[in-house]
Design a protein around this nucleic acid. Structure first.
Length: 804
DNA sequence: TACAGTGCTTTTTTT
DNA sequence: AAGCACTGTA
């Protein structure tokens, strides 16, 4: 037996050493599934399986990278470099780079990110003369994305009765038409969106038996991480690829399925056992991560969901502390509490910054934490922001590179045709697009033949110069590498110079960003020296960022079909669009981590703050309409609880800002699902379930202080602990003048509220409605309160009692 | 044509 | 609160 198997427990070892045949590992949170996966790969290799024949698919680049590194470490040699480990998207993109021509796409197809895709949608909605208020790009995009993930093509979409009913109901009857136009336009642009990477690969396998058999033979062993999050497109691909050898190993946890909004379906887990004759099922039920208390709470919470795969998570870890429940008055106070507590814990228990994570439901919640951490000079890293490559100046620059690699890329062309300004205005651009559509050619081809299409004078000259310039860039790639070309583009277009001359702070930042972009191209080029660019068939491939140093993959003697410069730049461009901001950050940096719960899946931290446990927020207002939605929210709660190894705080605020106005929220219903015995409510803010002002509880003290009922005396201190600073009101915190709601306060139906009516607000007191505005969907009342002045109240959130 | 001011929407989660 | 699109002005 190999050494690396010694560290595994029974079921883990059984899973890791299972050789042939389908295998399903049901892996509870913190049960060591990554360890099992990596050990399994190592075991396969050391038992004679060629590393070239192993495919491992994950959902994030981060997970892929970690897996690769751990296999490498386990094996202690470089065999791991030959593995295909990556995200569904990156692995499929890599393969499609060689196979795309079979489907009518260029090898150098562009990958459209969400912004590009939405821009295409905007274009086609306009061209179809549809109202873009009704057909908002984000809504349409989501709808199209769902269809693609469910393998519903435009024709099926248009012919499906239920779908059509649904679109009629939502007042969007033209969606089928838009979907169709969108798909055609992307194809014409030589571009695939994220969903296409899955969909087109599926179509390839489906339509070309020789391709199917090629990849079936190549990937004799397949491993899928986070199987509970696969969607039908991914499911079908896996099924096809695995059909020959049936060596498919999936790892998943139904309790952690949190991506149904992206088309993932838990059905895939249940279906797996029916797809193959004898599926071996192994459950990993021992948790190595969390304390008993944390695990008990997690188990208790998730038991409120119906229909789960039967399993009992247990741990031999210490009992640990109770879960600390904390209520604060506002979102800013919540931020302060967390920052204070981190500071205190660091001093008292010698934690590092990186031992803490602040996890929340929505990205918008990060603001308050950022501010408080910055004020206390605690280093932090926020995940979930914009990737470096999505910044405007970077995308503009990249658009030049995109257009020389794929001239059909209309989105890129539109970005740069008049940037920097060269006298090709909107009218000229519209005309070009119109001509392109009418003659069924690309916009670029129209520009190439500008004179033929009636352009004259200065505009014609400007277009001709532009076309000439782009062509000169493209031809440079024949003898210069991608970095040299990118540098040349920067100079020739004046972009670099212009930014250099812009001495504003933002201009400086943009200049530095462009420098960084050029560095990243340089790095890519340098690294490519060590990469094979040709696969076993002599076809140019997209190398992975950390790909092998020219081994195995077979440097064929067949000459490449395209210039190396083009290949290198083309693969660079495809690769960077699949990067997220998480891939650009160092997870080991000693900083507090801030991210959504979704983004935290698969991670663990000694100390976790689960923030914003309020109704409307978590569970989110968008997800409380069906049992399925609510159960997914609960799984999300399960995920956040199980991220914690030692200490867990659950925080919520009475009021917080939303869309610029204050809203009040009830504590989350999920809090009530935690058995009292595991809760520590003695914390600042009390976390009192009801909001009565009893005892010394700091929260009520805070309320009293802010009502001007006299400064809290020293006896108000928490025992053995000086008063935390978040209890100290600052001048910035302008609290409303106290108002005690009437005995009979009941929120009225305000759907017909009108100016002139008298109302009572729980906190702001009595007032008169001055005016009504906003939409019927989101009415906003301006109320002049007797004691608190004028305030805008969003009626969807605030509770008002109509007095008269 | 470019920019400043206005008003309107937005926030659920992401490769 | 903030970012975006639209509009009117210079």
């Amino acid at each position: 037996m190999h050494d690396f198997l010694k560290e595994l427990n029974g079921p883990q070892r059984e899973a890791a050493t299972h050789m042939d045949g389908p295998l399903m590992i049901v892996a509870g949170a913190g049960s060591g599934k990554t360890k099992v996966l990596t050990t399994r790969i190592a075991h396969l290799i050391s038992n004679g399986v060629d590393s070239f024949n192993i495919l491992a698919l994950t959902f994030t680049n981060k997970a892929a990278k970690e897996m690769k590194e751990r296999v490498e470490k386990t094996l202690g040699n470089t065999e791991a470099r030959n593995l295909y480990i990556g995200t569904f998207h990156s692995v499929f993109a890599r393969i499609l780079r060689t196979e795309a021509p079979k489907l009518g796409y260029p090898n150098n197809f562009t990958i459209y990110d969400t912004d590009d895709a939405k821009s295409v949608i905007k274009t086609v909605v306009n061209e179809l003369n549809l109202d873009d208020k009704h057909y908002k790009p984000s809504t349409v995009y989501n709808r199209i994305s769902s269809a693609k993930n469910a393998l519903v093509n435009p024709t099926e979409y248009a012919n499906d009765y239920a779908i059509q009913q649904e679109d009629m109901r939502s007042q969007r009857p033209a969606l089928a038409q838009i979907y169709n136009a969108y798909v055609k336009r992307c194809f014409k642009n030589g571009a695939m969106d994220f969903d296409d990477l899955l969909l087109k690969f599926y179509e390839l396998l489906k339509q070309f038996p020789e391709s199917l058999s090629k990849y079936q033979r190549k990937f004799r062993y397949i491993l899928i991480d986070e199987y509970q999050d696969t969607n039908p497109a991914q499911y079908e691909v896996i099924k096809l690829l695995g059909a020959m050898h049936e060596n498919v190993c999936v790892v998943g946890d139904d309790a952690q399925s949190i991506y149904s909004f992206r088309g993932a379906t838990i059905q895939n887990i249940l279906q797996f056992q029916k797809d193959y004759d004898d599926v071996k099922v192994i459950k990993l039920e021992q948790n190595y991560r969390s304390t008993q208390n944390i695990l008990h709470v997690a188990n208790e919470v998730i038991s409120n969901n119906k229909g789960q795969i039967e399993k009992r998570l247990f741990t031999e870890n210490a009992e640990g502390e109770k879960i600390k429940l904390v209520r604060t008055l506002t979102d800013n106070e919540e931020g302060k509490f967390v920052a204070d507590t981190i500071q205190e814990q660091k001093l008292r228990n010698h934690f590092n910054n990186k031992d803490f994570a602040i996890l929340y439901r929505t990205n918008a919640q990060s603001r308050a934490f950022e501010e408080s951490l910055r004020r206390m000079a605690i280093p932090y890293t926020i995940y979930g922001g914009m990737s470096f490559y999505q910044r405007k100046e970077i995308k503009d620059f990249i658009a030049y590179l995109r257009i020389i690699i794929n001239p059909k890329d209309e989105e890129a062309l539109k970005r740069i045709i008049n940037f920097p300004v060269r006298g090709i205005g909107k009218t000229s651009v519209d005309k070009a697009i119109l001509n392109a559509n009418n003659n069924n050619i690309s916009m670029w081809e129209v520009l190439e033949n500008a004179q033929m299409f009636g352009y004259k004078g200065g505009t014609l000259e400007a277009i001709d110069n532009f076309v000439l310039m782009i062509k000169s860039f493209a031809s440079m790639l024949q003898h210069k590498n991608a970095y040299e070309v990118a540098m040349h583009v920067g100079k020739q277009t004046n972009i670099v110079k212009e930014l250099f001359n812009d001495k504003t702070t933002e201009g400086l930042a943009r200049f530095e960003n462009i420098q960084e972009l050029l560095n990243s191209v340089k790095q890519w080029v340098d690294d490519s020296q060590n990469r094979s660019l040709i696969d076993e068939d002599g076809i140019v491939i997209i190398p992975e960022p950390t790909a092998p140093e020219g081994m195995g993959e077979g440097v064929s003697s067949t000459p490449p079909k395209v210039d190396i410069g083009t290949v290198s730049l083309g693969s660079y461009l495809q690769q960077i669009t699949l990067l997220t901001d998480a891939d650009e950050k160092d997870p080991n940096a000693d900083t507090v981590k801030l991210m959504t719960i979704h983004a935290a899946k698969g991670l663990e931290f000694s100390c976790v703050f689960a923030a914003g446990l309020e109704e409307m927020l978590f569970p989110n207002a968008m997800s409380i309409n069906t049992r399925e939605e609510l159960e997914e929210e609960r799984r999300l709660f399960y995920v956040v609880i199980t991220r914690s190894k030692k200490k867990l705080w659950i925080t919520y605020a009475n009021t917080r800002y939303r869309f610029g106005s204050i809203v009040q929220n009830e504590p989350s219903r999920f809090i009530e699902e935690i058995p009292e015995q595991y809760l520590d409510r003695s914390f600042a803010g009390g976390g009192a379930r009801n909001q009565t002002n009893n005892g010394w509880q700091a929260g009520s003290a805070f309320e009293r202080m802010n009502r001007g009922f006299g400064q809290s005396s020293t006896s108000d201190k928490k025992p053995s602990n000086s008063k935390p600073s978040y209890l100290t009101p600052t001048s910035r915190n302008i609290q409303p003048v106290a108002h005690v709601p009437s005995e009979n306060f009941v929120a009225s139906d305000t759907s017909n509220l009108q100016a002139g009516q008298k109302v009572e607000h729980q906190k702001f007191g009595f007032g008169e409605v001055m005016k009504m505005e906003g939409s019927a969907h989101n009415p906003i009342a301006t109320v002049k309160f007797d004691l608190n002045g004028e305030k805008k109240i969003m009626l969807n959130y605030a509770k008002l009692r109509i007095v008269e």
